[in-house]
């Protein structure tokens, strides 16, 4: 099995005059979970559906498991599981029979009954159109993974799920990863991305604007270091000791705040400076940004149309 499960290079996708994807590039390692984040209209679904072979790239290349989703569709389809954002199941079909039917199209499927059990769908007698949003989501998820694919594309897998169901889906995604399945998912749920994803791809306006592990995205670049100490420490001196990009302030008196690029160096500088003066900082804490902060600072805070 190749190291790279998915490789997107300079992908441009236009619908008429609308540019849905404007030169996106990134790659996904085999056996990892990649979360694609982005505001509405960022191009997440267009991107995923291009990988699934539904859209033909205007320019650039997409390589899925080393194959072209357009020309090698036949070889690729059994190896790729798909969960669409909208629909995919006949409105009159029940949960178990839908999973069983999809399983019957594959050579070595998972046990449909066990999958239904695991996802809490086995007692369900209602047809798809009468299921709750969460039940529909779980069914679509089951259908995406029942064929034992190498790679699964999940478009908003946890949307509309309650806490219990979200946990089950997260556990299964985690289990898929440890079994060697590559997972690419889109989500609006920052905590999903933070907890599940090995790699995050942030999209906006059809472009990939950031990639990296959640830790890398959240650490380093910004945050706040706060400690308590005696009143009126020499701020100018502390400021000089700090790495570039950090600023220190005292507010309220006795509480010192270092803002900016708060990383290990800033922490070391603060503690060294205190040691030189025989000052014991108390309640020292650092607060990294949450993924949501990173996301909002990357994509802006205004509401998208």
């Amino acid at each position: 099995m190749s190291e790279t499960a998915l490789e997107i290079d300079g992908l441009v996708l236009k619908y008429g005059r609308t540019v849905a994807i404007d030169g996106a590039s990134f790659s996904v390692r085999t056996g990892t979970v990649t979360g694609v984040l982005g505001p509405n209209g960022a191009g997440k679904t267009s991107m995923i559906e291009t990988c699934e072979g539904y859209n033909s790239p205007t320019s650039g290349t997409v390589s899925v498991l080393g194959l072209d989703p357009q020309t090698d569709a036949r070889a690729l389809r059994p190896r790729v599981g798909v969960m669409l954002q909208e629909g995919g199941v006949p409105s009159g079909a029940r949960a178990q029979e839908s999973i069983r039917h999809m399983a019957s199209l594959y050579a070595n499927p998972l046990d449909p009954g066990e999958l239904a059990d695991r996802l809490g769908l086995s007692g369900l007698r209602t047809s798809y159109r009468r299921m709750s949003g969460g039940e529909q989501q779980r069914l679509k998820f089951a259908i995406a993974i029942v064929g034992r694919p190498d790679l699964v594309f999940l478009d908003e897998p946890t949307a509309g799920l309650d806490a219990q169901a979200r946990n089950v889906v997260r556990e299964l995604i985690d289990q898929l990863r440890s079994s060697g399945v590559t997972v690419v998912l889109t989500t609006h749920q920052m905590d999903d991305a933070e907890q599940l994803a090995d790699e995050i791809v942030v999209m906006d306006g059809g472009k990939v604007i950031a990639t990296g592990s959640p830790e890398a995205l959240m650490s380093g670049s910004s945050g706040e270091l706060v400690f308590q100490g005696p009143l009126r420490l020499d701020l100018a001196s502390l400021q000089l000791a700090l790495p570039e990009g950090c600023t220190v302030s005292e507010s309220p008196p006795g509480t010192y705040r270092v803002a900016g690029e708060v990383g290990p160096h800033a922490l070391a500088a603060v503690t060294a400076w205190c040691a030189q003066r025989g000052v014991m900082p108390s309640q020292l804490s650092t607060q990294g940004r949450s993924l949501e902060d990173v996301f909002l600072s990357l994509t802006g805070r205004e509401v998208r149309p």
Binding site: R77, N108, R148, V181
Partner: peptide, 22 residues
Amino acid sequence: TTPTATLTDLRPNPGAAPIGRM
């Protein structure tokens, strides 16, 4: 009947069923 794997094993094992069966 379709051969199935248990949920303890999610390792990839892709493949299409025979076309007639599908």
